[in-house]
Amino acid sequence: MARHHVRATVNGDAVEFLCETGQTLLEALRDELRLTGTKEGCGTGDCGACSVMLDGRLVCSCLVLGVEAEGRSIETIEGMAVGEALHPLQQKFLEHAALQCGICTPGILIAARALLERNPDPTEAEVRDGLAGNLCRCTGYHKIVEAVLAAAREMRGA
């Protein structure tokens, strides 16, 4: 099967990979670039476990083709912590016990960061709406919502 040569930027690094026409960005990230932090929960855009940023926009990477990444910039969970420092969202997720099995956590962190970039001071309802595309089966979302609100407070310097 013919494979396409794709050049893109992932977490600030220039990368190249080969992918089949039908392969998704999620498969390219996981299988070609070995960035397995982005998870597949459904493959149909319903669970949000594969959330990444594509040119600054939150997408389900299972709904984007690998070839569509050509020339574009992708941010994944692997690029969220900067050096030694966890992102405030990552730190608050730990402190608030906002994760259990953790399979949804990368997608939720990416979606939560996108939410806070749009709205640095969300209400509880806005956090719940902002994360409504990300399924979590373990936590009941209680501690996730608390962690996002705590991170927002810290990021605002409040």
Partner: peptide, 16 residues
């Protein structure tokens, strides 16, 4: 699939 088999999402639930 998760579209038609609908498990609770964050906006369906209150604090517990």
């Amino acid at each position: 699939g998760f579209l038609d088999y609908r498990i609770p999402v964050a906006s369906d639930l209150p604090y517990i």
